[in-house]
């Protein structure tokens, strides 16, 4: 990347509109406000009469974002979110970015569910740092990104409408698997997940799947012989029997046209009823598998 020089400032306004932003139509000003943190967008009300109500139609919501070290708790954001949603009166949203931290109060989950319900027809992007996860009340949700989250209490992620799902750098439960039920998924990215890897339900529309597995994943075999190992991670008969799976179960990606698997461990070992064995022995190298007829794949990452 080329070195960045000192930040260039835009030239001072000369001629033309005299740098007057008010030459722009309301629809564009509303789009601009959609990029601001929502409290700042609301505060533009005081600029001049024309700005009084523009924020209510801002095309994006951005609440609690930009505080990477200490995200706000649900309780701290409650008043802000409730005011925003009530006063916006359901005007259309192109994107909605919510970042919140701990669930501290008893009512927190129901409040967050209420926010999702109220934004349901408009919501198509949520980035969150939290731990809930039933999105069946958001029939328009298409994009979901979960980053740096503690998902250890989550059992299931449900969304009938979701098309793009990224779960990155998060902690899953150590004793049960998260089931992901999202039949409309087109792209799926699971990266740097700790503990048990999620189990995927059928995703018939999947085009692209990307998995990055590192040492934090507990789905790995430490046995010396991968092919005949019967340790907990490898025992496939057990997985088949109870259907819950104790290996990394990726039956959901069977339709993927494009599967990328990157392992940071030395060896990725794949076997299933159809693809028996594939070795890949290269540090942080990628394995591309295209258009194979996957049925069930177990991925066991061993060191």
């Amino acid at each position: 990347m080329p070195p960045r020089g000192p930040a260039k400032r835009a030239a001072p306004p000369v001629g033309g509109s005299g740098g007057n932003i008010e030459v722009l139509p309301d629809s564009i000003l509303e789009h601009i406000l959609g990029f601001l943190p929502s409290p700042e967008a609301v505060q533009t009300s005081v600029l001049a009469r024309r700005w009084r109500h523009l924020w209510k139609s801002a095309t994006g919501l951005s609440v609690g974002c930009g505080y990477t070290s200490f995200p706000f708790s649900v309780e701290e954001l409650r008043s802000l979110m409730n005011h925003l949603l009530i006063l916006r009166q359901g005007s259309a949203l192109e994107k909605c970015e919510l970042t919140f931290g701990a669930f501290t109060g008893q009512d927190d989950v129901s409040h967050v569910n209420l926010w999702f319900r109220q934004t349901r027809h408009e919501l198509d992007g949520v980035r969150m740092h939290s731990s809930l996860l039933n999105f069946s009340s958001c029939p328009a949700l298409e994009y979901l990104e979960i980053t740096c989250s503690d998902l250890s209490s989550v059992n299931i992620i449900v969304s009938e409408s979701l098309k793009h799902l990224n779960i990155i750098d998060s902690v899953c439960s150590s004793d049960s698997r998260i089931r992901i039920y999202a039949p409309k998924i087109v792209s799926l990215r699971l990266e740097y997940l700790r503990k048990r890897t999620p189990m995927l339900e059928k995703m018939p529309e999947l085009v692209q799947a990307f998995f990055r597995i590192d040492d934090e994943c507990s789905d790995r075999c430490n046995g010396p012989n991968y092919e005949s190992c019967d340790c907990e991670s490898c025992d496939s008969s057990d997985n088949m029997a109870d259907g819950s799976g104790s290996c990394v179960l990726l039956s959901g990606v069977s339709e993927a046209q494009n599967l990328t698997l990157i392992s940071h461990s030395e060896l990725v070992y794949l076997h299933s009823h159809i693809i028996t064995v594939m070795y890949y022995k290269s540090f942080s190298a990628a394995l591309y598998i295209s258009s194979l007829e996957f049925r069930i794949i177990y991925i066991i990452v061993a060191t």
Binding site: A7, A10, P13, G15, G19, L24, P25, I28
Partner: peptide, 17 residues
């Protein structure tokens, strides 16, 4: 976009729209 004056930026927004 950084090199643009305010007026040029506003004109470009409208053209893009």
């Amino acid at each position: 976009v950084d090199r643009l004056s305010h007026d040029a930026l506003f004109d470009l927004v409208e053209a893009a729209n």
